[in-house]
Design a protein around this nucleic acid. Structure first.
Lengths: 174, 174
DNA sequence: GCTAATTATCTTAGTTGCTAAGATATTTAT
DNA sequence: ATAAATATCTTAGCAACTAAGATAATTAGC
């Protein structure tokens, strides 16, 4: 029982620590977007392009949750600033592929140097086995968040009375 | 040398896994804000209030990076919707403390239930020692991001020529 | 204790980026 | 051919932001 309690406390601390660092990470991203002179959404699209490579405008709308109209604006701005190029798909000429202009995108990459150095320094203090645990955790965490997003959609479609029956998460004390 | 290489690969995978899960976490937060019918910034302020408790309008501006004028709007909306209360500080009547109306804020908390259940499930598959490692990592990571944010400010104040000399982070291949 | 400077928030005008709805262009199905 | 579906773009209107300055309260200098 006393061991269970300390485990609960551990989990609560963990939740808060992750919330804090994640919030701070968001702030860092905003600061970078600011310095690059582009909006948050523009930055998010650059990030998606970096992770997924060449994608269509529609895919960007899907992933960001923005309307296709908004994406037109995002791509207009990024293209004007020279960060991306529009490329019509020759086999289906309705589609527009967006691809990164690497030379220009590197200018943004520089702003991530402080963050990457901080992370490298942090990671260097862990053993290979510990890093493997962290990797497993990050991957499992990603799956968990994806599942949670699905579950959240289920809440939307729930009738309000049933929604009220949801048990609340344990509140953190401060 | 081959062990060093696998360690580098590990770190690169880790970086990407963390980027992905963090991006997905942001998406989840946006979905919750949407369902609660409040904007992203409003949600972020609610989060800060949850983490820091009763804070002044100025503090919200400081932490979010918004102008004080924008915060006035945020608090107006949140107050109108019943999520927070304005309370003038009696000892310094220029200050306005913002405090959460818990009963109303719980309505938002419900949307976090899927996420918290996913996290609890995830964490339950780790031993106490492993959780302690994760906690240490999350805390160190927070400190790292804070430091990186400071270092980023240094880049701003750097003359452009010097900025160009910054070594680029290793690019991930895909 | 008066005056100036500072601090904290609010107000206003103008800008940006979003959505919703629908236009355009292309492809697929009947 | 014609209709339906798909992918992007355009437009009008709106929500939330910034910059600048107004207001009100506090602190510091004389």
């Amino acid at each position: 029982m006393s061991s269970a309690k300390s485990r609960d406390a551990l989990m609560q601390e963990l939740e808060e620590a992750m919330r804090r660092s994640s919030a701070q990470g968001v702030m860092y991203g905003q600061a970078v977007a600011n310095m690059a002179g582009i909006s948050n959404s523009d930055m998010e699209c650059m990030d998606i392009l970096h992770l997924e490579g060449r994608v269509t405008a529609g895919r960007l709308a899907e992933v960001t949750g923005l309307t296709t109209g908004a994406i037109t604006g995002v791509v207009d701005r990024l293209e004007k600033a020279g960060y991306v190029r529009r490329e019509r798909d020759e086999s289906d000429r309705r589609k527009v592929f967006i691809s990164v202009v690497e030379e220009k995108a590197m200018e943004i990459g520089k702003f991530y140097v402080p963050m990457q150095e901080a992370m490298l320094k942090l990671w260097s203090s862990y053993t290979d086995d510990e890093l493997r645990l962290l990797l497993r955790f990050a991957n499992d965490g990603y799956k968990g968040v994806l599942q949670a997003t699905e579950a959240l959609k289920a809440v939307i479609e729930m009738p309000p009375e049933q929604r009220a029956d949801l048990k609340m998460p344990p509140k953190s004390r401060r």
